[in-house]
């Protein structure tokens, strides 16, 4: 049994094979993630300097910017899964997609909340209708819509396909939304614009930022595997219950 190596993605379609690989990966992944967070947080508070303009509030960047990156990364992964569901009918694709959506929403929420807390000392308000915050807010709404559609449709296979189509439609629209919001913002530009991104970021800040981003990525992968295992277990429970209820034509 232990010699089963997934030589192709198709073999990972077997839940048992997937579970075995997930279990093998989870332990090391948790350790790496913890290490990254420990080093990243140490770098954030002790190694990186305070910004000459913003002072120490710049330390919020190290949890805010990686959350924004992950919010987009998770969506990209969901687009990939959506293609897997619709084109290749890969059985694990919709499991991955269902597991990913709430995680993407969580990272988006972290991005918004830390951005808002960062905004108070920097802009003077908790919420500024600035282009990036607004785009992220729309992204959160799309995530919430996807999660709502998952809950609304009972049959998991149908739900998976409907969500996959919605994910792809969202993927086509997201760049347009981003463009339109940027365009809208340039028309209403307030007097002082605060910019952090761009090449101005100092290397001493970049390193902890990248390590925190890797930590976020590790956390995402761990949670994704755990949630996929949960979903597979729930589906097996469902099958066994049907079997126990004596519904004909069902195999365990």
């Amino acid at each position: 049994m232990n010699d089963a190596r997934p030589t192709s993605w198709l073999q990972l379609a077997n839940p048992a094979v997937f579970n075995r690989w997930a279990d093998r990966l989870l332990g090391p992944l948790v350790i790496v993630t913890l290490g990254l967070f420990a080093y990243g947080l140490y770098g954030t508070f002790f190694l990186s300097p305070a910004d000459y303009q913003q002072g120490d509030t710049v330390r919020i960047m190290y949890i805010h910017v990686p959350a924004a990156w992950l919010a987009l990364f998770v969506y990209a992964g969901m687009v990939f899964s959506a293609l897997g569901t619709l084109v290749f009918r890969h059985p694990m694709a919709d499991v991955a997609q269902k597991a990913a959506a709430p995680l993407g929403a969580a990272f988006t929420l972290v991005c918004l909340i830390t951005g808002s807390i960062w905004g108070k000392p920097t802009w003077g308000t908790w919420w500024q209708w600035d282009a990036r915050m607004t785009s992220v807010l729309v992204l959160l709404l799309i995530y919430l819509g996807i999660m709502a559609l998952w809950r609304a449709v009972d049959d998991p296979l149908r739900a998976a396909r409907a969500v996959a189509i919605l994910t792809l439609v969202g993927a086509v629209n997201l760049p347009i939304i981003k463009f339109s919001v940027d365009w809208w913002y340039t028309l209403h530009q307030p007097a002082s614009v605060f910019r952090l991104d761009g090449p101005t970021i100092h290397p001493s800040m970049l390193k902890p930022l990248l390590i925190m981003a890797l930590g976020y990525l590790g956390l995402y992968l761990v949670l994704l595997l755990v949630r996929m295992k949960t979903e597979l277990t729930l589906r097996r429970i469902d099958r066994l219950q049907r079997l126990a209820a004596g519904i004909p034509g069902e195999r365990a």
């Binding site: 709404l141 799309i142 559609l149 609304a152 347009i176 939304i177 919001v181």
Partner: peptide, 29 residues
């Protein structure tokens, strides 16, 4: 698109709005 996605749902009206409205942002702008 929203109507097609919620076609099998008995009470899809509210869900449809939740799915559709974020996508209308560019048109509205």
């Amino acid at each position: 698109i929203g109507a097609a996605l919620t076609v099998s749902l008995k009470r899809g009206g509210l869900l449809l709005s939740v799915l559709v409205l974020p996508l209308t942002v560019p048109t509205l702008i």
